[in-house]
Design a protein around this nucleic acid. Sequence first.
DNA 1: GTAGTACTGGACTGCCCAGTACTATAATGG
DNA 2: CCATTATAGTACTGGGCAGTCCAGTACTAC
Lengths: 224, 224
Amino acid sequence: MEQAVGVQSGAPKRARRAGRLASGGAIREAAASLFLEKGYQATSMDEVAAAAQVSKQTIYTHFANKEELFADLVLGNAERVEEFVSAMARTVADADDLDSGIRQLARVYIRLVMRPEVLRLRRLVLGEVGRFPDLARTYYERVPGRVIDALTTLFTELAHQGRLRLEDPALAAQHFASLTLGIPLDRGMFYPIGETVRDTDLDRMADAAARVFLAAYSAPTSHD
Amino acid sequence: MEQAVGVQSGAPKRARRAGRLASGGAIREAAASLFLEKGYQATSMDEVAAAAQVSKQTIYTHFANKEELFADLVLGNAERVEEFVSAMARTVADADDLDSGIRQLARVYIRLVMRPEVLRLRRLVLGEVGRFPDLARTYYERVPGRVIDALTTLFTELAHQGRLRLEDPALAAQHFASLTLGIPLDRGMFYPIGETVRDTDLDRMADAAARVFLAAYSAPTSHD
DNA sequence: GTAGTACTGGACTGCCCAGTACTATAATGG
DNA sequence: CCATTATAGTACTGGGCAGTCCAGTACTAC
């Protein structure tokens, strides 16, 4: 039972990466692709190493273990929500009137959430709620929860301006989010990717959601 | 390497089950509990056998393999949706007026979906979309999709009676479902069980959803 | 009583996987 | 030119798990 005799004579088959620690990015990418595709348990560290064209040992110099790699993927892009949050405020501010602003807001929102990688990430996190409950909670707070908070702030402002009529801005934000995402999201979660809804259909649904929202919340003596 | 010498001398430690095939039920129950608690991959057949107080071999006489046991759990209670579907129609028919009927409908709907075992089942199915895409699709069609269909039928009827004003009953059904379930469901999916929302809070949310729905869809010259 | 059936209990096979150990090689910095 | 560091490559450990096999036991029907 000889072990690690180490008479390696093979020629180097793989180009070294240029920069220091540059393989960290490749590992992240490979892990993201595999986890999102196959799930946490079904993805082995050997597969990640192969996909990243990296040795398994290298993964373990960048990440303590599989769980940490997973958490990095789930929360890694959470800051990018801020971009969307500020884009939301601009969308409404730049609109000609409130109706078209709300309609446009619904359109960008639903397109953001229905992106295949977002749906896959949601599935991934939900599937592991049992194993990583804290991660799921943190993800919810930082991503969908953050958007709801931003909507609440936005609607509070619009109510102060007399452009929306509402008592509870948080509730209105939830109603807007539910109406906009609603069924497409629920359905999209259950159906495998590749069956993405067409953009024109998403726009139609967003417009319908905006119509219902405005019927309940637009100020009676607004323009139009 | 002797194998299966078979000098079993232990006394029978476990009472035999009375009826023929009675252990099938015990296996189903144990599997449901474990799968819903820990997920598909993290649950071993040995655990199921132990929880059902049944030998592993017995499981394999009732179910061809782990996958089939899983599918049985996911789709096993799908027919029970019909009970809810007919209860829905009755809820509205029995109500004093349309507003209270819709409000009551929202209340029973949200309570149905927010039950912990429903949330867990949804998580379980979503987490395995990658492995069992057909199962996820079938589950969606038979359970949440079935409810949407029933709502569509109901709203079509109410529109014919002149009690709702709508062009697209399917869209209205989706809006009703989204408004009612919406955020509580989304949030409930991400947060571990045990943090169930109080019934009074659910009622408050249901009433608010009904209010928005009626603002957009109730016929202008209705009673009240 | 005899045959059939449902079951127990446990061993066993074959496989997979997270994480580690160890040696060898390339790039970088002094 | 040498030391350090990141990396490759690969074998290995320790463990788990699906599914099978087999010997033996209870219960039922005839």
